[in-house]
Design a protein around this nucleic acid. Structure first.
Lengths: 195, 195
DNA sequence: CCTACCGATCGGTAGG
DNA sequence: CCTACCGATCGGTAGG
């Protein structure tokens, strides 16, 4: 039995769904739309996913894993707070750009998840954001960052970073690392104590 | 004949639609959902709007007007580029916070507009963004801002600003002006030449 | 503003 | 993986 065919088909369905959810929104994308994109009948999708919501659930949960794994190696390194924030921003942007379509779904369509998964999603996101807030607090303690309302700062940072999935379609064509570097420059310069 | 009743009802429909489009998305919000919120039958909505899309169209076009009107008075004033950007950011955030629900629709649901209005929408937004880009360019010319990729900078700025509609729901409760000031502080400090 | 209704399409299932 | 189908719901119209 060749399971790789099934795995590929599952991946195909997710990729088709990502494109449709992003362009039309979750509610306006039908299982028949997805099926047509994949080249099968709508009923066949239910061999791979038990419902439309499960497709969304899997896209979101895969993205969450990517984000956590990207910044996890930083935790044990002996970086300064400034360096840590630079690296974390770079990694975060890299994940978004590498998984462009899935990111757009992750950021905009998660609200269509139902309980209990919705609460789980929010909890995970919150714990991820807390890692960034902690780094910023370190920077303030070390007198490298100006004293600020750290929650608002992290809000501004994530707002700027999370929009980068939209950059691909714009006229700005740069390498991931370069984009991450420039965004992180603007932000970190904005936080630093000028001297 | 009392036209004010009709006008109020139209406003009522738009407000109900804003809440629903924001929470469920345009595609998943039905005319029956909106009607129920208003307290009439779905068919009655068509006395005020010719289609579901027209409701979306009117929400988006009203917001566009608000944005343009907010920054228009700045153009003729003799401010420096730094001051102009500060004021423009403040005005922009003020519009978002004053029209919280409509802003969320404006930023996330516009893509469900159809031609020819879709192109009109994009054109207007682009011309608005160009006003900001011009101010930033002035600042660079005046050696107040670091030389940067101005398009990317404006992208970062708008990403941060446009997310503020979401701030209301978070734990950050501040006055509009205060929020605008703090966000503009972070950003403008990030653009300035450190000295 | 309503009732009554249209054809189309939805998510999902049965059964093979 | 398909055909055939379910009940529910959709945006919108006719007619009053």
């Amino acid at each position: 039995m060749n399971t790789s065919v099934l795995i590929d088909r599952k991946q195909q369905i997710m990729e088709a769904a990502q494109v449709l959810f992003t362009s039309k929104g979750y509610g306006a994308s039908s299982m028949r739309d997805i099926a047509k994109e994949v080249g099968v009948e709508a009923a066949s999708l239910y061999n791979h996913f038990s419902s439309k919501e499960e497709i969304l659930k899997e896209i979101c949960s895969k993205m969450a894993t990517h984000f956590f794994e990207a910044i996890q190696p930083l935790e044990h390194k002996k970086f300064s707070a400034v360096q840590k924030l630079e690296k974390a921003i770079e990694k975060h942007v890299q994940v978004i750009i590498e998984h462009n379509e899935a990111s757009a779904v992750f950021f905009h369509e998660w609200k269509h998840l139902n309980e209990p998964y919705l609460s789980e999603f929010k909890k995970q996101r919150h714990s991820y954001e807390k890692k960034f807030i902690q780094i910023i607090n370190e920077g303030v303690d070390q007198k490298r960052f100006r004293p600020m309302q750290v929650k608002l700062v992290s809000f501004v940072i994530f707002s700027a970073l999370n929009a980068t999935y939209d950059l691909q379609k714009s006229h700005i064509k740069r390498k991931e690392k370069e984009i991450a570097k420039q965004i992180s420059d603007i932000i970190i310069n904005g936080l630093k104590i000028s001297n």
